[in-house]
């Protein structure tokens, strides 16, 4: 089994493992970000270039460094390979460049975007972006399109990761949407506005790293960090029925697939589970889900909010005055 060293961490991995997956096996900070690679979708990856890393030693056999940064999601580990991610300032500068390219035509409409809070581009912007843009030209825009009754395509936000096209290719039959045009004006489009009618089409929403594909049944209902994720399941003939409910009070605002640390879907779910089962009674609740993804959402605000409410209630029950923020139990550091 080949051995690879990434930012000083050495791991032995099965033959054929990519650098990115080797890094995920090590885990933690050193894992390169990925906007287009998706382990569950064949042939995904290679397009966005955010996962680039520096290969400072090719292999034991041929120790020459690779001349250019490589896409870690599509480059296979060789025995003795040494990779630099966070330990290479030049690489981080190059990645910042990629992030800038992804952002120059992005509308930055996070305040009105449903994806805000769980958006991979937002995370990437926080980590590698700059406060001010150097791009001073009009950003490209597209009309919003309804693809079917449940999905809204807001192409202006798209970063062309091709994940949704691969979902259509690999999960559904009779693909009706794809990438049209060329270059800067490429866009995801359905064939002359054909509606996507397929039991698994909703998974496109989950794989979209940005807010380009959103759930029409959830649009503008709530900021995601004000909803509480709860794992639940039901007997479903079409899919595993294992989902995550996003609740606000007694209401189920949204149903998604469960996602792992890297924001990837664990089990694909069907459109019935996603769009039609919005009552608590439809589901067998397993318990709250802790989001440990590297993202805004993982601040788990809803927990803090709940504890804040409890703290206020406790204070009131004691008959005390309402404490000011930062005082006693209400100090955000204490909850």
């Amino acid at each position: 089994m080949p051995k690879v060293t990434i930012d000083g961490h050495t791991i032995e991995v099965p033959e054929g493992t990519t650098i990115l997956n080797a890094a995920r096996m090590i885990g933690g900070e050193i894992v390169p970000p990925a906007m287009c690679y998706y382990s569950k979708l064949k042939t995904s990856g290679g397009y966005c270039r955010t996962c680039i890393v520096e290969v400072s030693k090719g292999s034991e056999k041929d120790p020459r460094p690779m001349p250019k940064p490589v896409a870690s999601c599509r480059t296979t580990v060789m025995d003795g390979m040494e990779v630099k991610n966070l330990t290479s300032p030049a690489l981080l500068e190059a990645r910042a460049g990629v992030v800038e390219f992804l952002l120059i035509n992005h509308p930055l409409d996070c305040p009105i975007c449903d994806q805000a809070g769980e958006c991979h581009l937002q995370d990437l912007g926080y980590e590698h972006g700059k406060a001010k843009t150097r791009y001073e030209f009009p950003r490209r825009t597209f009309e919003k399109i309804d693809i079917g009754n449940y999905i809204k395509l807001h192409m202006t936000r798209c970063i062309l990761c091709y994940r949704c096209v691969k979902v259509a290719e690999q999960l559904t039959d009779g693909r009706v949407h794809g990438v049209i045009n060329r270059g800067e004006v490429s866009e995801i489009s359905t064939y002359i506005q054909n509606a996507i009618k397929n039991d698994f089409s909703g998974n496109m929403i989950d794989v979209c790293p940005v807010g380009a594909l959103t759930d029409k049944t959830f649009r503008f209902k709530s900021r995601v960090w004000f909803t509480k994720p709860v794992d639940a399941h039901r007997d479903c003939k079409k899919c595993s029925g294992k989902v995550r409910l996003w609740e606000k009070g007694e209401e189920v605002l949204r149903v998604t697939a469960r996602k792992d640390t890297y924001g990837e879907v664990v089990d694909w779910i069907c459109n019935d589970c996603r769009f039609e089962k919005k009552k608590i009674g439809d589901w067998i609740i397993e318990g709250p889900a802790k989001i440990d993804r590297h993202s805004v959402i993982s601040a788990n605000h809803y927990e803090s909010l709940n504890q804040l409410k409890l703290a206020v209630a406790r204070q009131r029950n004691k008959g005390g005055k309402k404490p000011a923020l930062g005082e006693g139990a209400l100090n955000p550091n204490n909850i």
Binding site: G46, F101, F137, R182
Partner: peptide
């Protein structure tokens, strides 16, 4: 180059247009 970029990867898709502008 802006006209001929295929649009697959981000640095070329976005960068060529930016340079032209």
């Amino acid at each position: 180059y802006h006209h001929e970029s295929c649009g697959q990867c981000s640095p070329c898709r976005e960068g060529t247009g930016w340079m032209e502008k």
